[in-house]
Write a protein that binds this DNA or RNA. Sequence first.
RNA 1: GCCCGAGUAGCUCAGUUGGUCAGAGCAGCCGCCUUGUAAGCGGCAGGCCGUCGGUUCGACUCCGACCUCGGGCUCCA
Length: 651
Amino acid sequence: MSATITVRLPDGSERSLPEGSTAGDLAAAIGSRLAKAAVIAEIDGVERDLVTPLADGQTVAIITDTADRGLYTIRHSTAHVLAQAVLDLFEGSTFGIGPPIQDGFYYDFQLANGGTFTPDDLERIDARMREIIAERQPFIRDDIPNERAREIFKDHPFKLEIIDGEADDPTSVTEPGFARTYENPPKFIDLCRGPHVPDTGNHLGHFKLMRVAGAYWRGDEKKPMLQRIYGTAWASKKELEEHLHRLEEAEKRDHRRLGRELDLFSFPDEIGSGLAVFHPKGGLVRRLMEDYSRREHEAGGYEFVYSPHITKAGLFETSGHLDWYADGMYPPMELDEGQAYYLKPMNCPFHCLIYKSQQRSYRDLPLRLFEFGTVYRYEKSGVVHGLTRARGFSQDDAHIFTTKEQMGEELASILRFVLDLLRGYGLDDFYLELSTKPEEKYVGSDADWDEATEVLRSVGEAAGLDLVLDPGGGAFYGPKISVQARDAIGRTWQMSTVQLDFQTPQRFELEYVGADNQRHQPIMIHRALFGSVERFFAVLLEHYAGAFPTWLAPVQARVLPVRDDHDAYAQSVVDQLKAAGYRADMVEATEPLGGRIRKAKMEKLPYVLVVGDDDVEATSVGVNERGSERPERGVPVQDFIGRLAAETAGR
RNA sequence: GCCCGAGUAGCUCAGUUGGUCAGAGCAGCCGCCUUGUAAGCGGCAGGCCGUCGGUUCGACUCCGACCUCGGGCUCCA
């Protein structure tokens, strides 16, 4: 009969403790700092509460508030405090699920008589949460029979669905016969598998309720809409403040805000939701983006085509769009005695017709058709979002027709091309996503899908980037690989997609004559690099926070004469820059230099050139480069032009 | 499409319980200033308070509908 137990720690060492010791006791035995930082423990590979008693021979790791799983637990426990506060303050309210998420947590509620939360309510809830935290209520875990759970949660229909296994709750277990609960005495109890912090006063409190939003129960738009409260929670006040600061910084680089501040584009109400106009500066940046893409495509063996914005319905019947995609299309216009015309949501059918315009030989393949094709999609009113989700936009759309034999090599070269081009715009942190057959909306045989998916998988794996699976995320006509790019502040954007399509060539009865003198069906590869030019514009704008690299900047250099008697020289500098092919302008000395420099800085121009007496004398400029600590003086104009040339080489 | 919130000058925002509340800063225009690296000074002009209805002696203010925007949910071929 031993009075001690021995457990193994992650570093392989062993430690003996009195019998009956908990994981929390172990942390305390190791050190007071660890005890303070401890949130939960991992016992024999399973995450458990710190109050869990240990048994002899177990392997125990203490998980602290700096670990992801510790933070996750803090957020999860904060969600429980939120639920308790709401149930406390709102008579007749009930609750759905409340998991931790990226940066925080949420909880879904339904208030009596279809009530909703107001901003004032959030303040009251916040205050009540802080009271609960001050009360240091323990989190007490229990397993109870389903019968008992149904009794406890009899007034909470969403919880009953979870107990009965009808609804999925990422934080609960649904196992036959029993329910796992966590109780915060004296009066709150929730279904939950845990683990949780030991008590509400432990690690909690560095949170902020962020917003209230509607969310369908079980994510189903046919089910009731619940009221979701989102919050953020962190292990310390400092981390909370840093997070809030990051949000502010992200807001500053919001493309909608920068688009207005830098006079790049706008969305006039008169035109309609989701339809943008590009102003001269935005138009210039966009044209530079497109020109670079055109040159690269030309070098990559693509041929440029154009197609109209509207077409008779028959084309989209053939392509299958009217069967599968009608919801996303603008309603038809009736022309010519009942003939229905549609705005095009995609360019592929047109490119198929170009393919079909003559008899094709295997010698013509791969045939790579490229178009900046403007499409219109009827996006639901709640989803339009600046340039990233618009109703009218231009795709940098290519369709490549290949033989089945060429397909693998062509896909591999497309992927290389795509990644190289994206790098050309300054994005260089990528991973790949493989999207497979949708559950319901798809055409074609399973064998075709499997084959196409496998080809994409092998090409993706060969690219040497991380490849993650997106089950069911493919287009209705084929699987796809998409390139996800991380931007300057770590957000990921879906960029290019490469889709393999066996179906459309069949629908359009596309053929080529092979070396064997037989007719064969080509494979079609859909490929967009920007996805949408507008969206890519927005991504770059946010990536660069409005400070476009010199080759894309609408104004590359602004010349500022110190006094008005330097105007003529300043103008001659502008002329020289323009003659050398650069974009420069000048602001006359009607206000002090400091003010003019400030304005140029706020426009995020790459270079501000100040010219005064010394420069007139020496035919030089003062160079104030964006981001540099101090300006340079006396740089010869030709030297500066040489710098621009070096910086923009290849663009 | 659904839930919540918001629309006041080109932009960012103030506007107390319905009645001197049509306001500020920046931007714009006109003067003055003549300037060496992130805001010189003065003046002028600028709004049917998103639109349409309603309540009221009286509506930026209260109510309704619609439009647009923002945050979510669903969706994103």
